[in-house]
Amino acid sequence: MATQAATRVEQNACSIRGLTVVYRVERHEYAAVQDVDLDIPSGEITAVIGESGSGKTTLAMAMLNAVQPPGRIAAGSVVYPTAGDILRLSGKRLRRLRGDSISMVFQTSQNSLNPLKRIGGQAMDLARSHGRDPRGTLREARDLCAKMSLDADRVLTSYQHELSGGMRQRVGIMLALVLQPEVVLLDEPTTALDVLSQSEVLQILRDLQRERRFSAVLITHDMGVVAELADRVAVMYAGRIVERGRTRDVLIRPDHPYTRALIRSIPRLSGDLSEAVPLPGLPPSLTTIPDHGCVFRARCAYRMPICDTVQPPLESVGPDHDSACYLEGFPSD
């Protein structure tokens, strides 16, 4: 791990290509995720930000090949370097891959922890089911606990109900990292936490990531969490990625009107509050996503005739920065 950290590996921990996930509603199939291409670079945290109904959670489920009916993966591939395309796996090999290649931290970890088993026991179970050495895994678990300022002796012998919300979330992170998967999926890891616990968990994730250089996908609706944690960000709207790039670039020079409006709609502690402008309109629901043309045009202040016809493709607007908008350069405001 240490050597990996030293030399930055120029490869992807996961590549998503042409991913389309549809849901069946009353004899019609609607795309919750439409034609998504996304690379998860090794050793970095890639955020997927979007509102409810943007498809970010469906995307995460597809990365685990765990889309539940009435949903179905209609097209595309999700390739992990060692295991290949997860969408072609099933049964035992699929379960193996979940944990070996990709693991998940849930919004509410208490729902994912076994209430009848001690935390240490759960770590050992995890190791056994993936053919790892339980003792080594337990050592790793202790090490992770220490890094997260958890008392390992106490936590590993506890049941989940004996831990506080923030501690449970840290335990969830520990269990997700203990098998050293290629990608960790963080699904709204701090949303259910209180403000102070949130900042602590963010700090822990940041420190762990800096030290271990794991690759992660962060699913969130909160631009603040993205800014604090993610190296890169993909902005999702109505099932499509409308902008992606390095977090700093997207924050300072957002190109897509949605990203711009989203950032401007966040009240901030610094600066002039009159700069905060609400985003007009409402995000579309699954059944009302326009099937042609730009998905954002109904709320866009810069709508042009061409926006009604064809969804703009993601095109480079700067180094390592893509955006799906026909508009070139913003009117200054």
């Binding site: 629901s285 109904a298 009117p331």
Partner: peptide, 13 residues
């Protein structure tokens, strides 16, 4: 720039 219908807050489709 065409800006018809942008402000309608209640166009929940």
């Amino acid at each position: 720039i065409v800006s018809e219908e942008p402000q309608a807050l209640s166009t929940y489709p």
